[in-house]
Design a protein around this nucleic acid. Structure first.
Lengths: 156, 156
DNA sequence: GGGCATGGTGTTACTTTATAACACTCCCGC
DNA sequence: GCGGGAGTGTTATAAAGTAACACCATGCCC
């Protein structure tokens, strides 16, 4: 998301939807998990577990161990509220947690934003390619590095 | 590659092609780099940098530092002789180093094999999805987790 | 052939990312 | 209110990757 949007709205919206989803599923979105989700959403850039850890320590003043963060992230990923970007060892909020989907990402090398897409064509092509080889798909990962529109238009 | 193939042939073939390619390009496939390539090829399973490091130390008797291996791997990846599997932090030999391509992989959760495919449909779908959003693709990553044909047929 | 620039390798130390093992606590249902 | 399971805290450790700098070897120029 190339700047210039009301990001507090993104965060609030993400939290509201997470609350609703977890309530509906009987999953426990505890204070800690909710806070970690909020910190993941603090931008549209994927954030590392240790960056979140630092935020927790500094902003909230509590000294936290890595495991605490990893456990919260694990829960959030399981619930589909957060995706892990494998090629960055980092986490980013999911834009459409209600839908079951495996994330596809366009990661900008310049600004670091990771735009989530859920392109049916890409999914279908992967399914077809796998089926043709007798491979049963469980979890596809698509992470495309490149330059986002706004960084192409405003190079630095 | 579900067992039952002459893997020494795979290795020999990979090395021969690497020699030819590097000679053609004026790239220096030194003894160390060649040896690391051989170790990457020791199976069709992605191997971690530290596994290769251990092989170097134990099989060859030389104590080597991680950096040595990483540097060799970096070279091999640049030359397209080896691909990095992001979701595993591991490396696997490229089946078709002559062609320029970004790897697409079917990674079996059961046996660990990573089958490289270069499916034009998948590539085209990604290009189309990116183009529709004004995103310029530099390096697509596709890593599909699931079950390979042979592991579906012979569950354990 | 001597000098020298470049690229490759060795060595030490260190950072970042992730997990193991185990204790404690809180909350829910009964 | 209490027993059990899920969640969290704590300490330690493993795995993956990088920085800085020295040394060596190869090839090229003169």
């Amino acid at each position: 998301m190339p700047a210039l949007h009301d990001h507090t709205h993104c965060i609030a919206d993400a939290l509201t939807r997470a609350d609703a989803l977890c309530a509906e599923r009987g999953a426990r979105l505890t204070a800690l998990r909710r806070r970690v989700l909020e910190l993941v959403w603090s931008s549209h850039r994927p954030r590392g577990a240790y960056a979140i850890l630092e935020d927790l320590s500094q902003q909230d003043g509590k000294a936290t161990a890595p495991l605490t963060v990893y456990r919260a992230l694990e829960f959030l990923v399981e619930q589909g509220l957060v995706h892990r970007i494998e090629s960055l060892n980092a986490y980013v909020g999911c834009a459409a947690p209600e839908d079951v989907h495996s994330g596809q990402f366009l990661v900008c090398e310049a600004c670091g934003d990771a735009a989530e897409i859920d392109d049916p064509g890409v999914g279908a092509a992967i399914d077809a390619a796998a089926a043709g080889r007798g491979f049963r798909v469980q979890r596809p990962t698509v992470e495309v590095r490149g330059l986002c529109k706004s960084c192409q238009e405003n190079p630095r």
